[in-house]
C-alpha cells in the first residue's frame, strides 16, 4: 500500500492579518475533509474534489462562495480537475451562478468527450446535468462588494497595481491515494476587476494544474498570466522527471517564473512516491497537508506547524 498524501492551498498572495486565522482554519478543514477520504481508501480524485469543494464553500477564499467581481460586478469562475492514471481532465472557464465549479469540471471529464467548456456553454451543460443555479449574490461577500465599489473609481493602472500586490487567489489540492494514483484540482474566482471573459491559469491544463502517475501532481496559484507564460505545473513536473524532489522542482520553477516574467505564485506538489511540498514566492500562502498520521500546515515562509490526528 502506498502512503496516502493530500496537500491543499488557499491561494498565494499577501494575505492580510485579519484573514490569516480564517485562511489557516479553512485549509486545515479542507485537508481534513480530503484526507478522511484517502484514509478510508478513497481515490485521489475524490479527495481533491472534496477538498476543493470545502474551500469553494468557504467565503474566506476566492473560489465558489467568496469569489471576486469582474469589471461588470459579476462573478465568473474557472476550475480544473485531472487524474494521473489516464491523464483524464475536465475544466470550466468563465462559468456563472454555480457553487462548485470543480464538480462541474469533473462532470466535463466524466460525461463529455471534451476537456473544457466555457461561458454560456458551460452553464448550459450544468443545467443539462441538473446542477442547481445560485444567484450571483450568494457567491459574493458584502466585503467584496464594498471593496469592488471602492477600487472601481481608480484608474486601470492603480487596479493593476493593487492586483499585483494583493491578488485574492485560487484554491487547489493534490493527492496520492493508496493505489498509487495522483490527482489535482484547482478553482478560482480570478482577479478583482478582471475583464469580462478573462480566463487565467486555473482551468488551463499544464498551468493551473497537472497530474500524471508517472511524475506527480501539481496545483498552482498566484499571478495567473505569469503562470500561463511558463506553464508552471508542467514545468515543475518536468523538473521532477529529471530527478528533482517536489520541493526543489517547485522552488526552481517559481524562481524561473520570477526571473523570466517577474511573476510570483505558489504551488502544492506530490510525487508518485508521496514526496510532497508546499512552496510560494508571495508574502504568504495558506496550505495544509494530510498524511496517514499527521496534519501539517503553514502561512508564512519557512513556517510549518504539526498536529497529530486522533
Amino acid at each position: 500500500m502506498m502512503k496516502a498524501v493530500l496537500v491543499v492551498h488557499g491561494g498565494a498572495w499577501a494575505i492580510p492579518d485579519e484573514l490569516a486565522e480564517a485562511s489557516v482554519a479553512g485549509v486545515k478543514d479542507a485537508a481534513w475533509a480530503g484526507g478522511i477520504i484517502l484514509k478510508r481508501g478513497g481515490s485521489a480524485l475524490d479527495a481533491v474534489e472534496v477538498a476543493v469543494r470545502v474551500m469553494e464553500d468557504n467565503p474566506v477564499f476566492d473560489a465558489g462562495h467568496g469569489s471576486v467581481l469582474n469589471t461588470d460586478g459579476e462573478v465568473e469562475l474557472d476550475a480544473i480537475i485531472m487524474e494521473g492514471k489516464t491523464l483524464g481532465a475536465g475544466a470550466v472557464s468563465s462559468v456563472r451562478n454555480i457553487s462548485n465549479p470543480v464538480s462541474l469540471a469533473r462532470a466535463v471529464m466524466e460525461k463529455t468527450e471534451h476537456i473544457m467548456l466555457t461561458g454560456r456553454g458551460a452553464n448550459l451543460f450544468a443545467e443539462s446535468i441538473g446542477v442547481p443555479t445560485v444567484p450571483t449574490q450568494a457567491l459574493v461577500t458584502e466585503q467584496e462588494r464594498k471593496e469592488w465599489q471602492h477600487y472601481k473609481k481608480y484608474t486601470v493602472g492603480v487596479k493593476e497595481l493593487f492586483n499585483s500586490q494583493c491578488v485574492h487567489d485560487t484554491v487547489g489540492a493534490v493527492a496520492l491515494d493508496a493505489f498509487g494514483n495522483v490527482a489535482c484540482a484547482t478553482s478560482t474566482g480570478g482577479i478583482r476587476n478582471k475583464m469580462v471573459g478573462r480566463v487565467g491559469d486555473s482551468p488551463c491544463i499544464g498551468s493551473g494544474g497537472y497530474a500524471d502517475n508517472r511524475s506527480g501532481a501539481v496545483s498552482c496559484t498566484g499571478h495567473g498570466e505569469s503562470i500561463l507564460k511558463v506553464t508552471l505545473a508542467r514545468l515543475i513536473l518536468f523538473h521532477m522527471e529529471q530527478g528533482k524532489s517536489a520541493c526543489e522542482a517547485a522552488e526552481c520553477s517559481l524562481q524561473y517564473m520570477a526571473e523570466r516574467v517577474q511573476g510570483r505564485g505558489g504551488a502544492v506538489v506530490v510525487s508518485p512516491t508521496g514526496d510532497w511540498s508546499a512552496v510560494f514566492t508571495t508574502a504568504r500562502m495558506a496550505w495544509a497537508s494530510f498524511t496517514a498520521e499527521r496534519l501539517h500546515y503553514g502561512l508564512n515562509p519557512k513556517e510549518t506547524f504539526e498536529e497529530t490526528l486522533n
Partner: peptide
Amino acid sequence: KTSHVCLTAEGASKF
C-alpha cells in the same frame, strides 16, 4: 492591449 492572456466567449466579443 490587455493585462490578460485569454478572453473567452461573450467577453471576447465585448473586447
